[in-house]
Amino acid sequence: MRPFKYTGAQNKDQALQAFTATSHYLGGGTNLVDLMKEDVERPDQLIDINNLDYKKITSNDKGGLTLGAMLSNSETANHPEVRTNYPLLSMAMLSAATAQIRNMASNGGNLLQRTRCPYFFEVSMPCNKREPGSGCGALNGMNALHAIFGYSDSCIATNPSDMCVALAAIGATVEVQQTDGSSRMIVFTDLHRLPGDRPEKDTTLMQGELITAIHLPKPEFSDHYYYLKIRERSSYAFALVSVAAGLQVKSGVITKVGLAMGGVAHIPWKLTKAEGFLAGKKPTSENFKAAAALEMKDAKPFEANTYKVEMGKNAIVRALTQAYEREV
């Protein structure tokens, strides 16, 4: 890989100060280092933030939990409070990658995972995300694994994270440190962006901003939850389609619903229409099917990924059913 300067930061000020336009923060490195080896990412400097003190899970003033950005995915997903109160998040996180990768991967890094689009990874191929202006190889190429929602002519890639799908369903908030020393909050669904004509930008983070924490709202889906991930082998594969479903059911009526899909868009795809449809309704199979149909009718698949529409519908219904029928 290309040589780079390594800077070990002991605190956030050192990290922010060291940042330059061609720097990257180094967390677990599970995505970044691979991409550097593939010559896709080419930072001049890596600022190691593993010693930064964002490794705790604490209670927040909304009655929920706050997850430190530098905590590993394993520690987060296996944390007793996460398992008990946010089992949807835990389930999604544990379905991702492999144990070794989860041991290294940080929460902040997970939110910034880059696409698995093969055109992005192969530097001899066109890719607007990797090399703006070079074209999108997938658009008229192999796109069976690509987006069916929200894509543009510039980019049809999908977001690969499982954790993000669950966070979109749960409705989290992300806290970031800005380079001027102040911090700001980003509603989770505003963190990632659709490709438009700037697919090189995956998120709305500004240069040098550092994710420090993920705030979870008060637990709502600890009884009825399911993360369904459809993939070619039973483990260690990115989703063809995934669905995070959380329900709150009181007296036979759905009082709260969190639904998001993975593998279908450039961002974790929040199923707002289905959520709206289901709120206040009974958790029946008819309603689940209607909600799925309502959401999927706007899908615009390519010939090779038309299957995702049917698969997506079935997945939404199944995830909702499993969530509802879960033994409490």
Binding site: F121, E122, S124, G137, G141, M142, E232, S235
Partner: peptide, 27 residues
């Protein structure tokens, strides 16, 4: 799962790592 795809416009194998070419795992 095992399948190597040839990219129809460029002729390279679009399947270029274990992330794309799925061999069986323990599970």
């Amino acid at each position: 799962a095992e399948q190597t795809h040839v990219e129809p416009n460029f002729g390279n194998f679009i399947t270029r790592s274990f992330a794309d070419y799925h061999v069986p795992v323990n599970l």
